[in-house]
Write a protein that binds this DNA or RNA. Structure first.
Length: 404
RNA sequence: CCAGGGGUGGCAGAGUGGUCAAUUGCACCUGGCUGUAAACCAGGCGCCCUUGUGGCUGCGCAGGUUCGAAUCCUGCCCCCUGGACCA
């Protein structure tokens, strides 16, 4: 049996790993100490927005931290912002997003949970929908809450500042958002709230509200923002620079190979379970080799060792030895279209969005059949298609053509 | 409510009667170079066809003027600024 002191230290070490900021570390230590003494698990809250379909590697950082808490025996509370989603969340955008319907939320959550449970444990978990308590507030309650919060505090948020400066509209429902998130913390009596660094102000609001209502303020644990595939912006759905954890292994591998080298250090640290020494050693290799390892490590976590190896092999075969056959999906070409001009065939098989796009690709050399580039200025260019031909469209689309 | 300014392609932002499918930047796509990197360079970036000094759709929405409208007029919707009101 470890001593109490040692228990605290080891918990702290696990909790602090990979975090960007903790408010405050001192309080955290005290709270853990108390939890151990009283044998009472901490209530760790994460608010999630039911808008997303794909969970990406950036968000996984937060989930992994929750898993750490679960493994330490604490209680994780997932707050689904079904109510807040309906009023529109201003986070990180300067136009308000359209509210979601109940049905959309339901569909979103189904795929959400499936993915979430790849990372966190479905036990030791409490899932709550914030409409449970938010719909019950009456206007008097709301005003009481509002009376504890100043406009100055709300508009500290950079996004609001920017909009104020640029004279872009800020709607009142947006202003309310952080207050409601804060109320979640108050209602649930959370000990800790976890989020990305962009959530700092929202979390602080919870802290403040708890204090104003004479509750122990929650400790805030902020995770770093993972830089996305473009190497510039934080990974996010709207920028399409993300890797979703339920994407096929080949896809994940390909995406990892395409990240700029400058991201390697951050990604190795944040997206894998490798130790510092292993990472240090890895970083001496050629960037391409490092990426292969990185892809392997990432896939391993969401699939298995075997799939990870397979993806790497497939990549090497496909892109380095240019054998596209393993990536190609089989597509049957109906008899009626096989003699049509190539551009039309591509449209008919839904390989491209419009005939103009197809023609452009053919003109610019973006089409390859059996490894042979097809270039033609003739819009009526007819291609002799044979059974089993491999076609590559652009960089990333491959199909094996099967005659009807 | 009053006065003024404004609403243009994924975003930013030009254009104020024909040469505007709409300058430019970012994003995106294709090619080259590579490590399917990044950077860089070149081209492209509404749709359709009988590929042409071609047709259609398009500049908040609906009408109108005109041979011709993103550009002018009328009505409507929305945004911003200032004022009035309130404190």
């Amino acid at each position: 049996m470890k001593s109490r002191r040692a228990q605290i230290t080891s918990q702290l070490e696990i909790i602090k790993k990979n975090t960007e900021k903790i408010i405050t570390e001192k309080e955290l230590e005290e709270r853990i100490k108390l939890s151990i003494e009283k044998n009472k698990p901490l209530r760790v809250k994460l608010g999630i927005d039911p808008t997303a379909q794909d969970i990406h590697l950036g968000f996984v950082l937060v989930l992994k931290k929750l898993r750490d808490f679960q493994q330490l025996g604490h209680k994780v509370i997932l707050v689904i912002g079904d109510f807040t989603a309906k009023i529109g969340d201003p986070t990180g955008r300067n136009i308000s997003r359209p509210p979601l319907s109940d049905k959309e939320i339901k569909t979103n959550m189904k795929s959400y949970f499936k993915q979430i449970f790849k990372v966190i444990d479905s036990k030791n978990l409490e899932v709550r929908y914030n409409s449970e308590w938010l719909t019950k507030l009456n206007f008097k309650d709301i005003i009481e809450i509002f009376s504890k919060i100043t406009l100055q505090k709300i508009t500290e948020r950079e996004d609001f500042q920017k909009r104020l400066r640029e004279n872009n509209p800020i709607f009142l429902n947006e202003i309310i958002y952080p207050i409601l998130q804060a109320y979640d913390s108050l209602y649930l009596k959370s000990d800790i709230e976890i989020g990305g660094v962009d959530q700092e102000l929202n979390c602080l609001m919870g802290r403040e509200l708890q204090q104003k209502f004479n509750q122990q303020p929650q400790i805030i644990i902020l995770m770093p923002l993972l830089i996305g595939l473009d190497g510039k912006n934080k990974m996010s759905k709207s920028l399409k620079n993300y890797i979703g954890i339920s994407e096929p292994p080949d896809e994940i591998f390909g995406k990892v190979m395409s990240i700029p080298d400058s991201l390697l250090n951050q990604w190795l640290n944040l997206t894998t379970n490798l130790t510092d020494q292993e990472i240090k050693k890895l970083l001496t290799k050629h960037p391409m080799e490092i990426k292969k390892e990185l892809g392997h490590e990432i896939i391993k976590q969401y699939y298995n060792e075997n799939k990870a190896k397979l993806a790497a092999k497939k990549f090497e075969a496909t892109f380095q030895r240019k054998d596209y056959s393993s990536l190609a999906k089989e597509v049957v070409i109906p008899k009626e279209i096989i003699d049509m001009p190539l551009a039309e065939v591509l449209v008919n098989l839904n390989f491209v969005n419009s005939k103009s796009e197809a023609k452009r690709l053919i003109q610019q050399g973006g089409i390859e059949i059996n490894g042979q580039k097809i270039i033609s200025d003739d819009p009526k260019f007819v291609m002799n298609i044979n059974d089993g031909d491999l076609i590559r469209i652009g960089k990333k689309k491959f199909f094996k053509l099967i005659k009807d």
